[in-house]
């Protein structure tokens, strides 16, 4: 059972077992980095958040109580660190809007794969942070509705509302605009 193996690994990692530490890093770091990358749209910042998330995890390990799945807790920490950074960005640049996805890139034939990926990434980064988080957790990280709601500390209904708005915006920017051109 994932929960039990989580606990076993965490206990061993807390005691300084190098193999358990590495197993935890290998298992959970890609997900943390994925969330941070999608939320922040910046590789260096995403790496900083990933490192900070694990530093907090290492500090918390000795007193860890399995009230939730370790990944849920870890992703919540990562998400909150992303929120903090996004708020700081707004404080520093209050009038500067984030880059919007360019919907006037031209016909689909003209878009190569890299441009298309960039347009999707930009569109996600431009979403309001909670919509971006809902989309990242559900559509990109594959969390269940319950897990994603737990990570965001909201109800499943609120999660659905955020996700619906996020996908509607992306549809408008990435599909409708293109179909109209």
């Amino acid at each position: 059972m994932a929960f039990t193996s989580d606990l076993d690994q965490i206990t061993r990692a807390a005691a300084g077992d190098a193999a358990a530490v590495r197993a935890i890093v290998n298992r959970y770091s890609p997900g943390v980095l994925g969330i941070a990358t999608r939320m922040l749209g910046d590789k260096a910042e995403a790496e900083d958040v990933t490192q900070e998330t694990f530093i907090r995890a290492w500090k918390a390990l000795p007193s860890w109580e399995p009230r939730a799945k370790f990944s849920t807790w870890l992703h919540r920490v990562a998400l909150n660190l992303c929120y903090d950074r996004l708020r700081k960005r707004r404080e520093v640049l209050p009038d500067e809007l984030p880059d919007r996805a360019d919907t006037a890139l031209g016909p689909q034939d003209a878009l190569d794969q890299a441009q298309r990926v960039r347009a999707v990434e930009d569109a996600i980064s431009a979403l309001p942070e909670r919509q971006s988080a809902a989309l990242t957790l559900c559509a990109l990280q594959g969390h269940s509705q319950t897990e994603a709601a737990e990570i965001m500390e909201i109800s499943v209904e609120a999660l659905e509302s955020l996700l619906a708005r996020a996908r509607r915006t992306l549809r408008g920017q990435l599909l409708d605009g293109r179909n109209a051109s």
């Binding site: 807390a14 530490v21 890093v25 770091s29 990933t50 490192q51 290492w58 000795p62 999707v120």
Partner: peptide
């Protein structure tokens, strides 16, 4: 479109920095 987004890759340096900060 969402599924085509590349997964960001953990660099070796980042992995080692995280491991180095782990409990001893």
């Amino acid at each position: 479109m969402l599924g085509a987004l590349p997964e960001p890759e953990m660099s070796r340096a980042l992995t080692e920095a995280i491991v180095a900060a782990a409990p001893r």
